[in-house]
């Protein structure tokens, strides 16, 4: 496949209009909406659409970043630039209980770290601010389990996803009625693919974190992935060595849990061409599990099947 094999532009207009429609339904139907902002490319697209949907007014909802304290430094710098633009309020929440317990992906493993610093932290923040709608950047093409997610996904007062209470969605007529304490997660990018996201970033000139572009970076090969050594908290194991390699990231998360890919794609055009050619799943590099018990668990499952 080549770049010309990429979809035509008119379908980006359709996707953009659909997403804007969703943003406006949220603003009009909920008392206290928020946009979850994770600093990655999908969040960059979301933020761009948020601004477009309400132009010339300022976005009528704040952004919320749940900071696990293990994000790449370049991500935090990027977030601060967004906040400095001044048109949107950027809220940052850190689970202080987790910080006090010293939760770290390196010592506690991915599962515990993600649960405490991400999942629990998000619930804390939603409760603290009383948000009744939280917009997120998840796409249905990311993985199989998301293929069935609703655009407006209902959560009970304990933030639980209850499969029985998910509402059928007809047309673009969304049921936004909830009781006090209940909430919804809303996914305006549901129908976008990874390719759509990059094509749109190129077309609209949307800034993204430089980590998406190939550059020589200090990495360590660990458990079959290339981990970038982003600060002094990362300690080397006995047989490990830091080397400079030309790499980039397809998704961004906590740096010790995010695998880099070897690449020379240092421009948007090259990223798009590389993606069309290489054809491997986006999630390949995501969430490397350093948790020995969890991976043992998985091995057991594999053996069992």
């Amino acid at each position: 496949m080549s770049t010309d094999n990429a979809p035509t532009h008119s379908h980006l207009d359709d996707l953009e209009a659909e997403s804007i429609h969703i943003f406006r339904e949220v603003a009009a139907s909920f008392r206290h909406p928020v946009m979850l902002y994770s600093i990655g490319k999908d969040s960059s697209v979301l933020l761009h659409l948020l601004r477009k949907a309400f132009h010339p007014a300022r976005p009528p909802m704040p952004l919320l970043h749940v900071d696990t304290t293990w994000k790449f430094r370049e991500m935090i710098a990027f977030r601060e630039r967004v906040a400095a633009a001044g048109d949107v309020q950027v809220l940052v929440h850190i689970n202080q209980d987790g910080v006090r317990q010293g939760i770290s992906p390196l010592t506690h493993g991915a599962t515990v770290h993600t649960d405490v610093m991400k999942t629990q932290a998000l619930k804390q923040a939603l409760d603290q601010y009383g948000f009744d709608a939280a917009i997120g950047g998840a796409r249905r093409d990311e993985e199989k389990s998301r293929a069935k997610e609703r655009i407006f996904s209902f959560r009970n007062a304990q933030h639980r996803w209850d499969p029985k209470r998910q509402r059928p969605e007809f047309w673009h007529t969304f049921n936004t009625h909830i009781r006090k304490g209940e909430s919804v997660r809303v996914f305006p990018l549901s129908n976008w693919t990874e390719m759509d996201v990059w094509l749109y970033i190129r077309r609209e000139n949307i800034p993204v974190v430089p980590l998406y572009f190939a550059r020589p970076r200090p990495v360590v090969a660990r458990d079959g992935a290339l981990i970038m050594v982003d600060d002094e908290r990362f300690t080397l194991r006995e047989d490990e060595a830091v080397e400079m390699r030309e790499v980039r990231f397809r998704t961004l998360g906590c740096y010790p849990l995010t695998g880099a890919v070897e690449s020379s794609a240092d421009t948007l055009d090259k990223i798009i061409r590389e993606m069309a050619d290489s054809r491997s799943s986006e999630r390949q590099g995501r969430v490397i599990d350093h948790d020995p018990t969890a991976s043992m668990e998985r091995k057991k499952q594999e053996g069992y099947f």
């Binding site: 094999n5 979809p7 035509t8 249905r140």
Partner: peptide, 10 residues
């Protein structure tokens, strides 16, 4: 929901 494209269309 599944997503694919060809040279002509998404």
């Amino acid at each position: 929901y599944r997503y694919f494209h060809t040279a002509r269309r998404s």
